[in-house]
Amino acid sequence: MDRSPEGSFWHRIQRIPRHYIYLLLAGVVAWQLLFPIRLPVVPSSATKGVYDAIAAVPDDKLVVISTDWDASTEAETAPQTQAIMHACFQHRKRFAIMNLQPPMGVKLANDLAEEAAREYGAEYGVDWCNWGYKYGYENVLMALGKNVPKAVGDDFYGKPVTELPMMEGVADIKDVGLVVIVTGLSAMTEMWIGLIQGPYGTPLATAYTAVMAPIYYPYLDSGQMKGMLVGAKGAAELEVLVDRPGKASDIMNVQSWAHVLIIALIIVGNLGYLLARGRRGERAS
């Protein structure tokens, strides 16, 4: 029979009130934001895949960056988008931003592109452009495969894309050398693979929030994806490869210590559990 006192230390550390845990986590995040301890970031093969895929795009072809994210996942997806844009500008690859859902993403990505373009002296319509938010998911991609200017129509600013110098000679999806999806939404990958990568063989690279990434490894392994950025970690790794330590590197400092805190909490909870059980065992015998 269990006669161990429920209020013993080992029992209590199994039941730390959640408010204290919230407070601890907030403390760790604030500490690392104010006084970061910077640790080196080592690029993974999945991230190198994205970088190499951008570098390998033929000069006469476009990179399409589908920015299907919004403010909720911005902490991970904005640095990813930014690092991808840096990689494009550094390798002198022309890119077009587009967005299928949620519509907010196209404005947020446009701000990032403008900022990066200023740094490289890149010009809108020549080195990069924004195709804007396109309604209709599958319909847009099906149309994009067959006729890019017709599917896109007007750009973000309401100007026909055919009037942009960089769109000269862009007819169908064969003129796109790489599609990079940056997203916090799960159905996007299947759509791009099913309607663009599969039918036309257009190279595809992706960037996901860390929680989504595990289910997409099969596509990486099968070669359907050239590379994959996993959450803020992927963004930080790409920042290392483009030599532009930015927001993601800061986030990784925070994340490092937040993970350490969670691991410590799990260990504390288990110590309490095992030791309380051990005492019970002693008493029983």
């Binding site: 730390i16 959640r18 845990i21 919230y22 601890l24 986590l25 907030a26 995040v29 919004d70 403010a71 909720s72 996942t73 911005e74 902490a75 937040a258 805190l261 969670i262 909490l265 799990i266 504390v268 909870g269 288990n270 559990y273 095992l274």
Partner: peptide, 23 residues
Amino acid sequence: LQAATFSLLAFYIASAAYRAFRI
């Protein structure tokens, strides 16, 4: 508001992991 709601997940996962993860 959207970003703040998403960031709540960090707190929830910390407390849920602590509570649920027992060997």
